[in-house]
Simulated scan of single mutants.
Amino acid sequence: MKAIKITYWATTTIVALMMTYSAYAYLTQAAMLQAFNHLGYPGYFRVELALAKLAGAALLLIPLKSLIKEWVYAGFTFTFISAFIAHSASGDPVNYRVMPVIFLVFLAVSYITYHKVKQATTKNPAL
């Protein structure tokens, strides 16, 4: 059980940190405005997505056992899949396409281990 908890917190922290960093970059770096224009997105979407990423990262790290966390996982899943599609459709280099897939794998591991930890603590609240 200890290995599952460590895996859960490690992958969850990596995803949350990456989402926080990308939100920060969206709000502070002029290159991100150009990147969003390149992908065909309006400027306000960059700010909207940054705020959603910050909220999602915070909710992912808070020890909730509710439907809210499921929505955060779903939202981040859509975000990573959409990023892969957008970068692929606009002809971006392979590393731009691969990174969302890598973080989607981290998110999937986080999600799977979240449910394993949740199930174990439901059976034995002392864990």
Results as ranks from 00 to 15, higher is better:
residue 56 G to M: 01
residue 65 K to G: 14
residue 5 K to I: 14
residue 82 S to L: 04
residue 56 G to T: 00
residue 89 A to C: 05
residue 126 A to H: 07
residue 101 V to M: 15
residue 30 A to G: 15
residue 62 I to H: 06
residue 9 W to P: 05
residue 23 A to Q: 07
residue 53 K to E: 08
residue 2 K to M: 15
residue 38 H to N: 15
residue 102 I to D: 02
residue 9 W to C: 09
residue 24 Y to R: 02
residue 68 I to C: 04
residue 14 I to C: 08
residue 36 F to Y: 15
residue 98 V to W: 07
residue 5 K to D: 11
residue 15 V to H: 02
residue 106 F to E: 00
residue 126 A to P: 09
residue 9 W to R: 01
residue 92 D to N: 10
residue 123 K to E: 07
residue 17 L to D: 09
residue 102 I to W: 01
residue 100 P to M: 09
residue 58 A to W: 09
residue 3 A to P: 04
residue 81 I to M: 07
residue 104 L to W: 04
residue 121 T to D: 12
residue 125 P to W: 10
residue 63 P to Y: 08
residue 32 M to E: 13
residue 85 I to F: 02
residue 81 I to F: 09
residue 59 L to A: 03
residue 104 L to N: 02
residue 55 A to T: 15
residue 98 V to N: 00
residue 43 G to P: 15
residue 23 A to F: 03
residue 5 K to Y: 06
residue 88 S to E: 14
residue 38 H to A: 15
residue 53 K to V: 05
residue 106 F to L: 02
residue 105 V to Q: 11
residue 49 L to S: 08
residue 40 G to R: 01
residue 20 T to K: 00
residue 23 A to N: 11
residue 74 A to N: 04
residue 123 K to L: 15
residue 114 Y to A: 13
residue 31 A to H: 07
residue 36 F to N: 06
residue 64 L to Y: 10
residue 34 Q to H: 08
residue 58 A to E: 03
residue 68 I to F: 12
residue 92 D to P: 12
residue 69 K to T: 04
residue 7 T to M: 13
residue 98 V to T: 11
residue 77 T to F: 12
residue 6 I to G: 12
residue 38 H to T: 15
residue 30 A to D: 15
residue 81 I to D: 13
residue 15 V to L: 04
residue 13 T to C: 13
residue 115 H to P: 08
residue 96 Y to G: 00
residue 30 A to Q: 13
residue 37 N to P: 10
residue 96 Y to T: 13
residue 112 I to C: 04
residue 96 Y to S: 05
residue 69 K to W: 03
residue 4 I to M: 06
residue 88 S to T: 13
residue 20 T to S: 09
residue 102 I to G: 12
residue 125 P to Q: 02
residue 24 Y to L: 11
residue 42 P to W: 01
residue 126 A to Q: 14
residue 103 F to H: 05
residue 7 T to Q: 03
residue 54 L to P: 06
residue 47 V to H: 01
residue 83 A to G: 07
residue 19 M to G: 03
residue 32 M to C: 09
residue 105 V to G: 06
residue 65 K to P: 03
residue 90 S to L: 14
residue 7 T to S: 14
residue 96 Y to H: 07
residue 61 L to Q: 04
residue 12 T to H: 09
